[in-house]
């Protein structure tokens, strides 16, 4: 089948190259492509620039020394507000950063998807986002108002990693959560999109209401990875909530001697199948209550 884009996580991640700029979908501790992140942790990939509304995806990649530069607006696990490994990397000066407002970040992805070099915005003016990003320039309106804007540059991605509820082998996807975040913009901004999915169908046969849950076109998708539980320990609406017990344990590892090495040994090196068993399997996922805000 010519349009079969299904690959193993290892095959999909093997397409990434050192030094690439990689966007990671989701938001904080919500619908992060964690199975793909774990696959990167197991791979030799290095020196990546990570572009993310950050959660434990950013923390783990920082802990493993994979990150050369982080393009971000925040890194948080919500109920655990401060991400421990992001903080370590940041406070030790181990990573370079490009810090933007959440909306500027969206604008950057949008510009990339529209093949524009920048989009104008008022956001960022009169803040240190300009001072700390000397590459940022302002631009004056060519119209009578003459207003000065930030020219938010395109955040072009070499690759994007996105986790979805359902996909088919052709690269069609469905997002069933209450909020789809900005994943469609990551997909549009990227040259290469790797989708991981809880369920992979041979070929979608959808009714019209379900088809409305399709966030972006399949021509954007290059690889489809079957990854049940692939957002764990983050929140995948409406199927499972975040695993606070696991996130607490991960958080605590940052203050333990050799804590990260132990976490990697127990949860990463074992491979994804063993990871899912380790965390309690499908039974456990089914019991993870959806967060109440």
């Amino acid at each position: 089948m010519a349009l079969n884009k299904q690959k193993s996580a290892a095959e999909a991640v093997a397409q990434l190259r050192d030094g690439m700029t990689v966007g990671i979908g989701g938001w904080g501790p919500r619908r992060k492509p964690m199975a793909l992140v774990r696959e990167i942790l197991r791979s030799p990939l290095k020196d990546i620039t990570v572009v993310s509304y950050g959660g434990p995806d950013v923390g783990m990649l920082c802990a493993a020394g994979k990150v050369k530069k982080l393009v971000f607006a925040f890194v948080t696990m919500d109920a655990i507000p401060l991400e421990p490994y992001y903080r370590k990397a940041r406070e030790s000066g181990a990573i370079a950063v490009e810090e933007y407002d959440e909306g500027m970040f969206e604008w950057g992805l949008r510009a990339a998807g529209m093949r524009m070099s920048f989009l104008p915005t008022r956001v960022g003016l009169a803040t240190d986002v300009l001072a700390k990003n000397p590459q940022l320039k302002t631009i004056a309106s060519p119209y009578a108002d003459g207003e000065v804007y930030v020219a938010m540059p395109a955040l072009k991605l070499d690759a994007a990693l996105i986790h979805v509820n359902e996909a088919d082998r052709l690269g069609n996807t469905l997002l069933r959560g209450h909020d789809v975040f900005f994943d469609a913009l990551y997909a549009r901004a990227a040259d290469h999109v790797i989708v991981s999915s809880e369920v992979v169908h041979e070929k979608f046969e959808l009714d019209a209401d379900t088809a409305k849950l399709n966030p972006f076109e399949r021509y954007l998708v290059h690889s489809v990875v079957h990854a049940p539980g692939g957002a764990h320990p983050t929140y995948l609406g409406p199927h499972y909530g975040w695993d606070m017990e696991h996130l607490k344990r991960y958080n605590a590892s940052a203050t333990e001697e050799g804590g990260w090495a132990k976490y990697v040994e127990e949860f990463v090196n074992v491979g994804e199948a063993a990871y899912q068993t380790q965390i309690g399997g499908a039974e456990k996922l089914a019991k993870l209550k959806l967060p109440v805000f």
């Binding site: 607006a73 507000p81 401060l82 810090e99 500027m104 956001v123 009169a126």
Partner: peptide, 27 residues
């Protein structure tokens, strides 16, 4: 809401990030 300390490249305390503050405050 981003980073505390005189050295932005190596802050004494990394907090959350600027989040939506630049946009909220100017809009």
């Amino acid at each position: 809401l981003s980073a505390v300390g005189p050295d932005y490249a190596k802050p004494k305390s990394a907090v959350l990030g600027v989040r939506g503050l630049p946009g909220n405050s100017i809009c």
